[in-house]
């Protein structure tokens, strides 16, 4: 039906005029094959150019367009209107993040947390392989052991699903810890000890109470909750091992 409509209730916040956010309602033409992002783009182009949000690839890989859709963190380029029609859809910025404007959140602390886990390949100083000698060998099984954790698109949906991030602003959080584990699990990497300083700290894995929602909302099946629990087990084993008399201190 070409003249069918769907209602979007969008949380607006303008730092220059507003003290706090409030909802605004928009009527949008309903197309069965439109995603929520299409509807938001339609509003910006045709109704209200001030509506502010991030988006880019519209194919679920750049990680820009995460928002709360009816209370759940989703990539708006991957949620179809037909999931909700004819009911209205409520759109809010990702939960637990400060809001810059409308649906744009402040990502500064997320970026710092990502960096804090040292997400790069670390080799012992004398064990770097010269480029002339080619690649590090890595079997398909070794690749498979960390591949899942390498699929994170940094969309931050997991942070918006995790109440701990709302309660403890210092919590390193699901995506960053999973990224640290991605490198720890990589057979080419030798940097686990360096990363443990952050990962095994109170602000990282021991702040996680295993709500588990981070893995539920993850659009790429990274399973950050799993990564965190595995890190807990390994850190616990580390601690017990350190008590053994023959462990080198």
């Amino acid at each position: 039906m070409p003249d069918e409509k769907i209602t979007l209730e969008i949380l607006r916040y303008h730092p220059e005029t507003d003290e706090e956010p409030s909802f605004q309602t928009f009527e949008v033409p309903y197309h069965e094959d439109w995603v929520v992002l299409d509807a938001i783009n339609w509003i910006k182009e045709h109704v209200d150019g001030t509506l502010t949000y991030r988006w880019s690839c519209r194919m679920g890989v750049c990680g820009s367009c995460g928002m709360m859709v009816n209370g759940t963190p989703r990539l708006t380029c991957a949620v179809f209107l037909n999931e909700f029609h004819p009911e209205p859809i409520k759109i809010e910025p990702l939960a637990y993040f400060p809001v810059e404007r409308d649906l744009v959140t402040v990502m500064d602390s997320f970026m710092e947390k990502l960096q804090s886990v040292k997400p790069w390949l670390i080799r012992n100083e004398d064990e770097e392989k010269p480029l002339e000698e080619g690649e590090y060998l890595q079997s398909p099984a070794e690749l498979a052991s960390y591949k899942q954790f390498s699929m994170c698109i940094n969309c931050m949906l997991c942070y918006a699903a995790c109440p701990v991030t709302g309660l403890e602003s210092e919590f390193v959080g699901p995506a960053a810890i999973a990224l640290g584990m991605r490198y720890n699990r990589d057979s080419r990497d030798q940097g686990r000890e360096q990363r443990q300083e952050v990962i095994a700290s109170h602000d990282a894995i021991w702040n996680c109470t295993f709500v588990g929602e981070c893995s539920v909302v993850c659009p790429k099946d990274v399973d950050p909750a799993g990564a965190i629990q595995q890190a807990k087990v390994e850190s616990t084993i580390d601690w017990y091992t350190s008590l053994l008399p023959w462990t080198k201190k």
């Binding site: 730092p15 507003d18 759940t72 939960a95 400060p98 810059e100 929602e213």
Partner: peptide
């Protein structure tokens, strides 16, 4: 730039079924 930081309500655990179950 004047970011708005949403407050964390005391009833946060009642936000959805997953939190309640947790």
């Amino acid at each position: 730039s004047k970011p708005y930081t949403p407050p964390m309500p005391l009833t946060w655990w009642n936000k959805n079924t997953a939190y309640r179950l947790f």
